[in-house]
Simulated scan of single mutants.
Amino acid sequence: MASVRLDQLRKVYPNGHVAVEEASFEIASGELMVLVGPSGCGKTTLLRMIAGLEPISAGTLSIDGRVVNEVAPKERDVAMVFQNYALYPHMTVAENLGFGLRLRGAARDEVARRVREVARTLELEDRLDARPAALSGGQRQRVALGRALVRDPKVFLLDEPLSNLDARLRVAMRVEIARLHQRLGATMVYVTHDQIEAMTLGQRIVVFDRGRIQQIDTPMNLYRRPANLFVAGFLGSPAMNFLRGTLRRDGGWRLETPHGALALGEPPAAPAAWAGREVVVGVRPEDLEPAPAAEAVLAARVEVVEPVGNEVFLNLRFDGRPLVARLPPRTLPAPGDTLPLRFAAERLHFFDAASGGRIGD
């Protein structure tokens, strides 16, 4: 396996559109790094630059210490798994798996050996004689993965490989990819717009927006300490709630909004220097909980109740803004009810209302 290093990597198209702006980070040998962000943010473009399918406008790309900016894709020793399976319909699973090796002139015995090994790893041994049309979606995706595995490349590049699967298969294949990575210890770069995939698969995550890196960290660090409003709102399902107002210090901290003041208690993250300035206070849905009226910080109107079995999402309206609370299943309010709520001061997040950047702690 190999490390991958990006140093000020940039991609500008002839029309002047900047798809990737100054991307710098390193993927350690054997690491599973996830690139996540909304559609059109530049993550797939960056993956294609690593693969050699997109020319690099500026910066340096190194694989295992070797600068590969001008190296042809086939000489980079990387394998890419695309969103579309792109299997050859007239070939069997075994022929699809071994095609790349045969194309490179590998001996027949070597091809057969590698195909058997990969089929065993992906539990495809009993499907080697089948053609793609006879396979399920999950099996086809495993064949696409196997076609990359059989080459034993330095780096695996996966471009939204699960987006064509139904919800149940996506969950199953997510687990399969995680197990495969643990078993192989392979260097993998995985692109997705699905933040659940990113959080569950990535050892570290690179969050993209509009061609720029917003934050790089482990999944839980991103969740607990988002660097800005974009990351805070993008990672988490349901997303973080935001309350905008002026921060005041009067006995305790409070947030002044157009419809009144919210008592914030004594949050450790409250930035004393920001008293009197406009901020955005973030609170995760699981940190909003019903409370007796005497202990409530705010009262919100229930709009929609979404039971999903082991938990319930309450879609609320407060101060003209939507809020979401995540609650355990129990006796629930009805749409139209007013619900008193509180939150733990130590779980609040503070952001600059102008720049969106995190402030405090």
Results as ranks from 00 to 15, higher is better:
residue 183 R to V: 09
residue 180 L to K: 01
residue 226 P to M: 06
residue 180 L to R: 00
residue 231 V to Y: 00
residue 172 A to T: 11
residue 197 E to N: 03
residue 167 A to G: 08
residue 172 A to G: 04
residue 183 R to K: 15
residue 226 P to Y: 06
residue 175 V to F: 12
residue 204 R to M: 08
residue 204 R to Y: 06
residue 170 R to V: 04
residue 251 G to H: 07
residue 243 L to W: 07
residue 234 F to H: 05
residue 164 N to A: 15
residue 202 G to A: 06
residue 226 P to G: 04
residue 240 M to L: 13
residue 212 R to P: 00
residue 164 N to V: 13
residue 227 A to T: 09
residue 205 I to G: 02
residue 208 F to C: 07
residue 195 Q to D: 08
residue 184 L to S: 07
residue 233 G to V: 07
residue 166 D to H: 13
residue 243 L to T: 04
residue 243 L to V: 13
residue 189 V to S: 02
residue 191 V to I: 12
residue 206 V to K: 01
residue 203 Q to H: 15
residue 219 P to Q: 04
residue 223 Y to C: 06
residue 237 S to W: 05
residue 197 E to L: 06
residue 169 L to F: 14
residue 244 R to V: 15
residue 228 N to F: 07
residue 250 D to Y: 11
residue 194 D to S: 13
residue 240 M to P: 02
residue 211 G to N: 09
residue 246 T to M: 10
residue 223 Y to N: 06
residue 194 D to H: 03
residue 245 G to F: 03
residue 198 A to I: 10
residue 200 T to I: 00
residue 170 R to S: 07
residue 220 M to A: 14
residue 167 A to H: 13
residue 166 D to G: 14
residue 209 D to I: 08
residue 249 R to S: 14
residue 244 R to I: 11
residue 231 V to A: 06
residue 251 G to C: 11
residue 216 I to E: 05
residue 170 R to C: 05
residue 199 M to H: 10
residue 172 A to W: 03
residue 167 A to K: 12
residue 188 M to S: 02
residue 175 V to A: 15
residue 245 G to H: 07
residue 221 N to D: 15
residue 175 V to H: 11
residue 229 L to E: 07
residue 176 E to Q: 14
residue 178 A to Q: 03
residue 230 F to L: 02
residue 221 N to F: 06
residue 245 G to R: 02
residue 207 V to N: 02
residue 228 N to R: 07
residue 198 A to Y: 02
residue 208 F to A: 01
residue 230 F to N: 00
residue 200 T to W: 00
residue 164 N to D: 14
residue 231 V to P: 03
residue 197 E to R: 07
residue 173 M to S: 12
residue 219 P to T: 02
residue 250 D to F: 08
residue 172 A to Q: 15
residue 205 I to K: 00
residue 202 G to K: 01
residue 229 L to F: 03
residue 241 N to A: 05
residue 234 F to W: 09
residue 227 A to Y: 09
residue 239 A to C: 11
residue 217 D to K: 02
residue 218 T to R: 12
residue 183 R to C: 03
residue 167 A to Y: 10
residue 173 M to A: 12
residue 197 E to Y: 09
residue 201 L to Y: 07
residue 226 P to W: 00
residue 203 Q to Y: 10
residue 213 I to F: 11
residue 179 R to T: 10
residue 225 R to K: 15
residue 187 T to E: 09
residue 176 E to K: 10
residue 169 L to G: 11
residue 209 D to C: 11
residue 196 I to A: 14
residue 228 N to M: 08
residue 227 A to D: 03
residue 188 M to N: 00
residue 170 R to N: 09
residue 168 R to T: 14
residue 226 P to C: 09
residue 179 R to D: 08
residue 212 R to L: 12
residue 198 A to C: 10
residue 251 G to S: 11
residue 181 H to D: 12
residue 189 V to A: 05
residue 230 F to E: 01
residue 195 Q to E: 10
residue 179 R to C: 03
residue 247 L to V: 04
residue 218 T to P: 03
residue 235 L to M: 12
residue 218 T to N: 05
residue 215 Q to N: 13
residue 235 L to G: 00
residue 203 Q to G: 10
residue 186 A to F: 05
residue 182 Q to A: 15
residue 235 L to F: 04
residue 240 M to N: 02
residue 179 R to W: 11
residue 200 T to F: 00
residue 219 P to F: 04
residue 193 H to V: 11
residue 165 L to H: 14
residue 174 R to W: 13
